[in-house]
Amino acid sequence: MEYTEFGKTQLRVSRMCLGTWGIGGAGWDSYSDESRMDAIKAAVDCGINFIDTAPAYNGGRAEQYIGEVVHKLGVRKEVVLATKCGNEFINGKYVRCGAADKIMRECEESLRNLKTDYIDVYLVHWPDPNVPMEETMDALNTLKKQGKILHIGVSNFTKEQMEEAEKYCAIEAYQPQYSMVDRKWEQLIRWACAQKMGVMTYGTLGGGILTGKYRELKEYGVDDNRNRFYPYFKEPLFSKVMLLLRTMDQISEERNVPLSQIALNWTLQRPFISSCIIGAQSRDKIEENCKVFEWKLSDDEMQLLEQALKKTII
């Protein structure tokens, strides 16, 4: 495992962060409770000290899994916990609300779920255009003064929204989507890094499309996140990603490594990213992903991938 300073927070985090949207169990493949909790334990065993979650991940279920495992292992002081506010999962739907009273309530619920009395990094999950930014940020300032959260961040914000938020409080962390097949926020990520924000990117494997597991176009359920959130599982992007996978297959065969490690390796070599978020619901996938730190893509391989991206995705 590799570690780095997380922006200006003075937190030292693993460069791989465990993502728990899938572990929450809504909109992804079905795994047992035991498998999901063992995946969290496997992450800790592999040296991951950074865990990302949210109350919106199946109504707090992901937070509860994390709280149970971290408490049972007795590693709370060694683990950096990031969770979110302003987005709830209600009756199978994601509902945004940045109102102060909702944020205060969400924080208390997250603290109970996580079995902790403080949250290391607290992020606004999505901006709420119906609530003044000042109200949302003032609520976070209050929670920080109370010692319930240590560092404030945002996810899925534009530059203009971050600059507006910073009128009311210091933003120390930024969480955007970023991967080989989604680089639309790269300039903003570079800007955030230059502002000394800790940058933690999600969607590193493109919802799983970059693992090579999905080679045939198929239909997914209405609530499945591969149908609802990630666009790569439909045309025209599906065929474009399949062309990219051919180049990744070539490197995979020469290196004898899985495609997931190639996608992870590519992201980890971006100097403006502190930690990349990887979701997995089983121990074997966690352990496989962590082996990415045993090797690096060469300059020639990086160039080969860039050429393939220009022909297909970019």
Rank of each mutant, 00 (worst) to 15 (best):
L217Y: 05
Q195N: 05
R215M: 12
Q187L: 14
G147A: 01
D249V: 13
P236F: 09
L245Y: 01
M200K: 07
S179K: 00
P236I: 13
S239P: 00
E235H: 02
E186P: 01
A139L: 09
T247H: 14
Y122M: 08
M242C: 05
I251Y: 08
M242I: 12
A165N: 03
L111I: 04
G206K: 09
P129Y: 13
K144L: 07
D128F: 03
N113W: 02
W191D: 00
Q146W: 15
E216M: 09
I189V: 12
I119G: 02
D249I: 10
P176H: 07
L111A: 04
Y178H: 12
L150S: 06
K145C: 13
L123R: 03
A139Y: 08
D138K: 13
M242Y: 07
G207D: 07
S110A: 06
K184C: 11
E235A: 01
A165H: 01
V181N: 06
E166T: 04
C193P: 11
M133H: 08
N130L: 12
D223Y: 12
M242W: 10
K240G: 04
K196Q: 13
K196A: 10
Y178C: 08
N141Q: 06
L245A: 02
V257K: 12
L243N: 07
V222D: 10
D138C: 15
R246Y: 11
K240D: 04
E254W: 15
M137I: 04
P132G: 02
M197K: 15
L210K: 03
F238D: 00
S239M: 10
K218T: 13
C193E: 14
R228L: 13
R190V: 13
F233Q: 08
D249R: 12
K144G: 06
M137R: 06
L244K: 06
E186G: 04
E186S: 04
V131Y: 02
A139F: 08
T247R: 10
N130I: 08
F157V: 00
L205F: 06
